[in-house]
Simulated scan of single mutants.
Amino acid sequence: MSREVKALSQNATSKPHSHHHHHDDAKGFVQAVEHASEARGLRLTPLRKEVLELVAAAGKPVKAYDLLDQLRDRHGNAAPPTVYRALDFLLEHGFIHKLESINAFVSCHHPAEAHQVPFLICDVCSSAQEVCDERVAELIEAQAKALGFRPQAQTLEVHGICKQCRKD
């Protein structure tokens, strides 16, 4: 193990982790995305905003076809490509995250900054916690570098049972 990986490993136990559940203030989140879009010169169309609002309001990871059903309830004529284009835009600009293992989407708690974070996903209630600790991404990046590997993307998802479900 390289010195930088060892140092990150040792520090990982000494600093507190910051966890966020994905069911915080949906309206405030959408406003933060609107501000970030404006600052970056991005066009948050009414449909993109509506999809964003649905993801934010879900309170837990939501699948694309569930979003499509909700849009059809409101508009009647929404098609899968419409939803996927909106999701692609939101993903591309870091406003939402895709949880690959469950093929679902959650809002990002830091929409104004590009970052990669691991998620803790409850297999009982389907909640997802964003672990906002850049040391994890740095540790993976350093280990990859030590092995001569050049990562292009990171998706770390840890499945288990959340504190609330363990109590119940």
Results as ranks from 00 to 15, higher is better:
residue 125 C to M: 12
residue 110 H to T: 12
residue 76 G to N: 06
residue 115 H to K: 04
residue 106 V to K: 04
residue 80 P to Q: 04
residue 109 H to F: 08
residue 104 A to L: 09
residue 88 D to G: 14
residue 114 A to K: 13
residue 127 S to D: 12
residue 99 L to Q: 07
residue 120 L to Q: 09
residue 108 C to L: 12
residue 119 F to G: 00
residue 68 L to W: 00
residue 85 R to M: 09
residue 110 H to Y: 15
residue 95 F to E: 06
residue 99 L to G: 01
residue 74 R to N: 12
residue 92 E to V: 08
residue 95 F to Y: 09
residue 82 T to S: 10
residue 103 N to S: 11
residue 119 F to Y: 04
residue 113 E to C: 15
residue 83 V to R: 06
residue 72 R to W: 01
residue 98 K to L: 13
residue 95 F to P: 01
residue 78 A to Y: 01
residue 115 H to L: 07
residue 104 A to F: 04
residue 76 G to S: 06
residue 93 H to V: 03
residue 93 H to D: 10
residue 100 E to I: 09
residue 114 A to I: 10
residue 118 P to W: 03
residue 113 E to Q: 14
residue 95 F to I: 00
residue 92 E to I: 06
residue 78 A to T: 14
residue 119 F to S: 03
residue 95 F to V: 02
residue 83 V to D: 06
residue 107 S to I: 08
residue 116 Q to E: 13
residue 110 H to I: 08
residue 82 T to K: 14
residue 125 C to D: 13
residue 79 A to S: 07
residue 94 G to S: 04
residue 114 A to D: 08
residue 84 Y to D: 13
residue 114 A to L: 13
residue 72 R to D: 02
residue 115 H to Q: 05
residue 105 F to N: 03
residue 115 H to V: 03
residue 100 E to M: 11
residue 81 P to I: 03
residue 71 L to K: 00
residue 103 N to F: 00
residue 106 V to S: 02
residue 81 P to N: 07
residue 89 F to Y: 00
residue 122 C to Q: 03
residue 95 F to R: 06
residue 90 L to S: 04
residue 77 N to K: 13
residue 120 L to P: 05
residue 109 H to T: 09
residue 99 L to D: 02
residue 90 L to E: 08
residue 120 L to H: 11
residue 102 I to L: 12
residue 85 R to Y: 07
residue 92 E to H: 14
residue 86 A to C: 05
residue 106 V to T: 08
residue 108 C to M: 12
residue 75 H to K: 09
residue 105 F to Y: 15
residue 106 V to M: 08
residue 120 L to T: 03
residue 118 P to Q: 07
residue 101 S to T: 11
residue 125 C to G: 11
residue 80 P to K: 05
residue 114 A to S: 14
residue 112 A to T: 10
residue 87 L to D: 06
residue 77 N to V: 05
residue 106 V to Q: 08
residue 126 S to L: 13
residue 93 H to C: 04
residue 104 A to T: 04
residue 106 V to L: 08
residue 124 V to W: 14
residue 99 L to W: 01
residue 111 P to E: 08
residue 127 S to E: 12
residue 72 R to H: 09
residue 124 V to Q: 15
residue 71 L to R: 01
residue 96 I to F: 01
residue 109 H to N: 12
residue 102 I to N: 07
residue 105 F to V: 03
residue 79 A to W: 00
residue 104 A to E: 05
residue 69 D to G: 13
residue 84 Y to P: 00
residue 75 H to Q: 10
residue 79 A to K: 14
residue 92 E to T: 14
residue 93 H to L: 04
residue 127 S to Y: 10
residue 68 L to G: 01
residue 69 D to E: 14
residue 113 E to W: 14
residue 83 V to M: 10
residue 72 R to V: 13
residue 116 Q to Y: 08
residue 109 H to R: 10
residue 120 L to S: 07
residue 86 A to Q: 02
residue 96 I to G: 01
residue 105 F to P: 05
residue 91 L to N: 00
residue 88 D to Q: 14
residue 92 E to G: 15
residue 115 H to F: 06
residue 96 I to P: 05
residue 127 S to P: 07
residue 87 L to Q: 00
residue 112 A to M: 10
residue 91 L to H: 03
residue 113 E to P: 15
residue 76 G to L: 01
residue 113 E to A: 15
residue 124 V to M: 14
